[in-house]
Design a protein around this nucleic acid. Structure first.
Lengths: 192, 192
DNA sequence: ACCTGAACACCGTTCAAGT
DNA sequence: ACCTGAACACCGTTCAAGT
């Protein structure tokens, strides 16, 4: 419950992260300045530094917060469909928060909260018949493929495109499908 | 020939781009400020604006300049090997200029000079048996895959890696190889 | 002891004054 | 007419002064 006119809730890391996410989602990464953030929280810029080390750390906290909402796979699906769905879900989710990919690209963050997601995908991949090393490589490939699609809004040479306009979403689905087709042993695609 | 003590060569777009690339290559994108650039050119900041519209345009010019050096394929190779080699070459080239991927990721640039490269890759892909639409999708996939590998230095969940340390180079080779294997019709990999 | 307004050292960009 | 030092409006970060 927000106290309307009286005392503000005490400033905290959580409060900062929540407000910062709201600003980034609404207005983009560039609009997320420490001045704007402090103002939106009704405090001074210097006060933020009692809870975060610097902007870099704040961005890391934001990514970590978003990572909590990464999709989980439907265990009822077959391996290939389960993998496909989860990566399409993640693509859709991160497309709705485009600042996340930018933060990952510009910094060197290690998101603790993304580890369970990674582990689940590795399990899916080994469960589909891959060795541990191939599973790791496949995971990194899928992740880097996703990052590339999220960041590259104007693929170079785009002005060559005479082809029917397919959405980024369709293109990502095509790419992941093709990759899974060749990656997973046995189990041919059999039209769908 | 640089005139040592006397008159400087007249400022030009070319001179600005050359010096800017040198700074970015040597010290990274953050070090490429208009102040530093002007200083390195022995002129004032305001003078730069007589040749470029703003920093954004400068970065676009830089990418365009780099694109002139994108690799060309060896026509003597078979389609699959030709494609593999050219994308590994491009990966190696852009790894040596890491600021390029960052510029592409943060801006929305359309590099005119990258168009011939794109066209050659499309030709290789159709030459390998793909339809025009699939060739376009394959090109975008390869390009986005490359961008993801260049930008993502710490793939999320990296602290899971118990697997033998493979270099980014090897991982990219693995990813492209696998993708080409499933993409190109006929012509099985047949061990190598 | 805890908080924070005001300052500091940057940045990209503009403008008015110099030649 | 062309060039550019100095200023402007920002930014992240720090510090000294307030409670």
């Amino acid at each position: 419950m927000v106290t309307p006119g009286g005392a503000r809730p005490k400033l905290s890391r959580e409060l900062i992260v929540t407000k910062a996410r709201a600003i980034a989602d609404a207005s983009g990464l560039d609009a997320l300045t420490l001045r704007e953030l402090a103002h939106a929280l009704g405090t001074g810029q210097a006060s933020l530094y009692r809870h975060i080390a610097d902007r870099r750390e704040l961005l890391g906290l934001l990514v970590d917060d978003v990572a909590l909402e990464f999709p989980t796979a439907d265990p009822g699906l077959a391996p290939r469909e389960r993998l496909l769905k989860v990566w399409l879900d993640l693509h859709a989710f991160l497309s709705a928060h485009e600042w996340v990919a930018k933060v990952i690209a510009e910094g060197e963050y290690i998101s603790r909260n993304a580890a369970p997601f990674a582990q689940r995908q590795l399990d899916s991949l080994t469960g589909a018949g891959l060795g541990t090393e191939d599973a790791m490589r496949a995971y990194r490939t899928l992740y880097n493929l996703l990052l590339g699609f999220l960041l590259n809004k104007h693929p170079m040479g785009h002005h060559l495109e005479a082809v029917p306009p397919s959405t980024e979403d369709e293109e990502f689905r095509w790419a992941v499908s093709r990759f899974l087709d060749c990656l997973l042993p046995g189990e041919p695609p059999q039209g769908q």
